[in-house]
C-alpha cells in the first residue's frame, strides 16, 4: 500500500473506532441502556479483565504456549499474589512478581 492509502486506512479505522467509542457518551438512548444494564456490564468487565489475564498467560502469537516461559509467568504471578496477600500493596506486588519472573528466566536461560 502507498503512503496515501495508509493515511486513508488509518483515517477510516480511526473514524470507525471513534464512533464505537463515542456513541454511548453522545447518544442519550445508549446512555440510558448503560444505566439499565449496569449489572450485566459490570459482569462483562470482570470477564474481560480475567480474559486479558488468561490470554496473556497462556497464548503466544495466537497459539497455546505451555513451555518453560509459561511456567515462569505463572511463578511470577504466584509471587505477586503472595506479596499482595501479605501486604495488600499492588505496586509492590506487581514489581516483585514481574521482577521474580524476569530473574527466574534470566537464571534458567529459558
Amino acid at each position: 500500500m502507498t503512503n496515501l492509502e495508509w493515511l486513508i486506512a488509518v483515517g477510516g479505522a480511526a473514524a470507525g473506532t471513534y464512533v464505537l467509542r463515542a456513541a454511548p457518551f453522545l447518544w442519550a438512548p445508549l446512555r440510558e441502556a448503560g444505566r439499565k444494564y449496569a449489572d450485566f456490564l459490570s459482569y462483562v468487565s470482570f470477564a474481560i479483565a480475567a480474559g486479558i489475564v488468561s490470554k496473556a498467560m497462556l497464548l503466544q502469537e495466537g497459539r497455546f504456549a505451555l513451555g518453560p516461559e509459561t511456567y515462569i509467568k505463572f511463578a511470577g504471578l504466584a509471587v505477586a499474589l503472595g506479596v499482595y496477600r501479605g501486604t495488600r500493596n499492588i505496586p509492590l506486588a506487581l514489581f516483585l512478581g514481574a521482577g521474580a519472573a524476569v530473574a527466574i528466566r534470566w537464571m534458567s536461560g529459558a
Partner: peptide
C-alpha cells in the same frame, strides 16, 4: 479499514459501561 474497525467493536461495550 473494516478489520481495523471490527476488531475494535469491544470499545462500544466499554464506553457503554463508562457512561454510568
Amino acid at each position: 479499514i473494516s478489520v481495523g474497525v471490527l476488531v475494535n467493536l469491544r470499545f462500544f461495550v466499554m464506553s457503554l459501561t463508562l457512561t454510568t
